[in-house]
Simulated scan of single mutants.
Amino acid sequence: MPVLRAPEVRRPGRGDPAVGHRQAAPPPDARAVRRRRGPDGRRAMSEIVFLFPGQGAQHPGMARELFGREPVFTEILEEFFELLDGEGKRLRDDWLTDDPAVPLDEGRRAQPLLFILGYALARTLETRGVRPGVLLGHSIGELAAAAFAGVFDLPAAARLMEARSLALDGSPSGGMLAVGATPEELTRFVDPPGRPGGVVVGAVNAPRQTVLAGPEPRLGEVERALEDAGTPGRRVPALQAFHSPAMAEAAEVFTAAFAKEELRRPSLRIQSTRTARAVRPDEATDPGFWAGQVAGAVLFWPALEALLAEGDFTLVEVGPGRRLSTPARRHPAVRSGRSTVIPMLPSTAEGTWEFWTAALDALDALP
């Protein structure tokens, strides 16, 4: 398939004639935003939280309908691709085509794209007056959160994404397996921490949504053992064993790249999915803190739970799909209506613009 070329950048209205008047219904939580009003007509919601998704959220055509239509989004993407030089053109082409030279599930494609899409969406919302008080990112999404909070700038981010891709080149073949069970229930299937070539808990996304990670062939052995025990898993779209000891060498290479950059304290609170608490100032300037997460477990649910225990929030997912919105909606604070979830993009390429504008309407309804 030929590469899709971006149309001329223009500033659209809500009923952009290029795509017709919006007919798609707003996301369910958008309607909830409008309903939940106090006596004075304003809604009591303390802060907005931007959720940045990671590996597994990628899909063909993600966010492409915004490219060329949302000026800030487009400008940031083009700047990032230019900063990556020749690799940026290849990354851009693979994103804009339906037949990429490098599969989007490959970390060298998924990771930089997820990073810059999350960052660009967050900046676009910021220019529209949607300003978060807290950032929470999953895997590569935590680096997007760090960039948005000013820990490093966009040129540094481009260099770091190049270094991350190079670090992945030497990593062993592996993957990730999502299992509907608690980490405790999976103890007998995983290997002792630190075992070379072992399978470990790579992410805790919800109370009964655990991701195992490790290299092949060991991951395949664990997958078959789970099937035999009546607890089948589902492969996460990833071709590397992220968040497992198999990525230790990649983390070392990545740490060296981070050490060359100027790291600053974040301007916003980052609720880290590595520690399940706010990033401390000394951690923010530590290269190993950011680089080491590629080999460490992602504690999304513990981080979210600790945050929502503090009060009511509007959780806005700034990335493709609903990878973080879906588990967040299961949290008691959201199910009770105290907190709200608004995903900004759908899980498929179709209807992206309509979904985006409906989500913007939901955000416009916030006080």
Rank of each mutant, 00 (worst) to 15 (best):
A284Q: 04
G351F: 03
D364Y: 05
V204R: 05
R128F: 10
P132A: 12
V9I: 11
D40V: 11
G214A: 09
L308F: 05
G129N: 13
V134I: 15
I140N: 00
D29K: 07
Q55T: 08
G107E: 02
V204D: 02
G288C: 12
R109E: 00
G337K: 08
K260C: 13
A257D: 03
G68V: 02
P28W: 03
S244E: 03
G198T: 04
A203M: 09
F242T: 06
P103A: 03
R335P: 11
S325A: 14
G68W: 00
F242H: 08
P7E: 06
D93S: 08
T352V: 11
R323I: 13
M176E: 02
E142W: 02
A30M: 15
Q293C: 05
A259D: 11
A248M: 08
F115I: 06
E142R: 03
L263M: 07
D85I: 05
A146F: 04
L268A: 05
T340C: 15
E252H: 07
V236Y: 01
T74P: 04
L66G: 00
E283M: 08
L135Y: 01
V298P: 03
P7I: 07
P245A: 12
A57H: 02
G180T: 10
V201M: 04
Q240R: 14
T348N: 11
V199K: 00
F52R: 01
A238L: 10
S339L: 12
A291G: 14
P196L: 09
P281M: 07
T273H: 10
R42S: 12
R264E: 07
P367I: 13
G20I: 11
P26C: 11
R218W: 12
D40E: 12
L307N: 06
A18F: 07
L121G: 00
A120K: 01
A306M: 14
Q209R: 13
T326G: 10
R11A: 10
P28H: 04
A358R: 02
R109Q: 02
A250Q: 02
D228T: 13
R338P: 01
A57N: 04
G220K: 09
A145E: 03
G220E: 08
F81Q: 05
F67G: 02
D94F: 00
R280Q: 15
G296C: 15
L96H: 01
R280N: 14
S267H: 13
D364A: 09
L136A: 04
L104N: 00
V151G: 01
F148M: 14
P7D: 05
F73V: 13
A295Y: 01
